[in-house]
Every structure is written in C-alpha cells, then in structure tokens.
C-alpha cells in the first residue's frame, strides 16, 4: 500500500462520496493506492477476509486515471418507511416535485448551511412493501421511496430528502427509516439511469489483455 510522505505518513486511501452513518450501501467505492502491481482478484479476497462481516469487497478493478471521484455523478437510494403508507408517501413526493426549490438546513463544519434538495433530485418513485399478513387484518403494507440524487456540494443525503418531505408535506416517520444506497455512478443520457463507474477501466483492461495476447 502506498503512504503519503512526511513525518506522519498516512495510507493513501480515499473513500469517494462515502455513505452517511446509519445507512446501508450496496455501492461504495474506495480508491487504494499501491506501490507495486497486485492481482485485483487476490487483493479482493484478502481485503474481504480482513473486513468485518457485512462489509464485502465485491470487486477490485485497476484504475489508472485520477478522475474516479468525478464519475460518481449520482446515487440511487432506497428509503424504507415502515410506518408510512404508500398514499402518504405519494402525496409528500408529489409536493416535493411540484416545488421549484426546497431548502433544508444542515449543520456542517462551517455552521448551518441551506441545501436545495429539490434541485438535486433527479427521480423519485414510491413503491409498496407488503408485510407478512397477520390473520385476517387488511395489510396495506408500507412505503418505499426510490430516489436518484445528483452529486452536488454539499452532498444531498437521504436525511435531507426526509427533511424536505417533512417541510413540504409534514411527513415525519416515528420509526427510523431504513436507508440503502443501491447504485452510484455516471448519469446516463436520460438523466436518471446510473451507469457503472468502473466500466471504462474494465474495457481498458480487456483491450490490454487482448493486445497482449495478439
């Protein structure tokens, strides 16, 4: 692993756009600089063995450009709201869409900052999660939001989206929402679809392998 120079060297690791505390994620990207060529698959296996259960290394890809963080243009979040009905969530989401801008306040290192959630919002759908039915009771299930958010500075987090829904529609779940990041990457031509941020590196590697074989 590569280390920074100076009196107290630090490992060169960068956590691009890390998910906030308390959220789950299936799409986190970490850049690790190494001092010698290593086999990505071996590195993946060894890292996975050292990490606690639940933190799984899905894939290691060799990247040679320094623009990786810029490729993370948007995130898709899944927000489960166990005590919110689909109808309530629908109404709140519609109110958010119809606003021109919805600012929420967040405490940052440099004090309170206003963040425009609406401006960063690219897509927002409400789905229904059904519960295992209990007896004869009607079971309407609960709401799941799927939102796509553009990467801006400061980052609009799931918390901010919930704060925005509270501000436009009074939506305030008592049960803490369960939040999962499902994807991160470059935005597709439609402005909603999220692509694979490692695609170009995978192609480069494939090309190299092909030319090496020829």
């Amino acid at each position: 692993m590569a280390f920074s120079s100076g009196f107290s060297p630090h490992p060169k690791i960068s956590y691009a756009n890390a998910a906030p505390t308390g959220t789950a994620s299936e799409a986190e990207y970490v850049e690790i600089a190494v001092v010698e060529r290593v086999d990505p698959q071996t590195l993946a296996t060894e890292l996975d063995a050292a990490l606690p259960p639940g933190l799984d290394v899905v894939e290691v890809v060799e990247v040679r450009s320094s623009d990786f963080a810029d490729r993370l243009q948007a995130s898709r979040w899944r927000i489960e709201l166990p005590d919110v009905t689909v109808e309530q969530a629908d109404e709140a989401m519609r109110a958010l869409w119809s606003a021109d801008s919805v600012e929420v306040q967040r405490r940052t290192k440099s004090g309170m900052r206003a963040i425009d959630v609406r401006a960063a919002l690219l897509a927002g759908e409400v789905g229904r999660q059904t519960r295992p039915s209990q007896g004869s009771e009607a079971n309407p299930g609960y709401a799941i939001l799927q939102v796509v958010v553009r990467q801006v500075t400061p980052t609009v987090r799931p918390d901010d989206i919930l704060a925005a829904l509270r501000s436009v529609a009074g939506l305030s779940p008592a049960v803490p929402p369960q939040v999962t990041r499902e994807a991160q990457g470059p935005l597709g031509a439609d402005g909603v679809t999220i692509g694979d941020p490692l695609e170009q590196d995978r192609e480069n590697r494939a090309d190299e392998a092909a030319s090496a074989g020829a």
Binding site: T21, G22, A50, P52, P53, G54, V175, P176
Partner: peptide, 18 residues
Amino acid sequence: EQVLPLVGKPIQYVGGEV
C-alpha cells in the same frame, strides 16, 4: 438497530472488531 440512528457514535455499539 432501530435506535442506533438516534444516538451519538453508533459504531461503538455494533462490535465486529477484527
């Protein structure tokens, strides 16, 4: 897990240390 989002430094309660 339900209350962890509501407290400070929740990671101290989850274990999973190497």
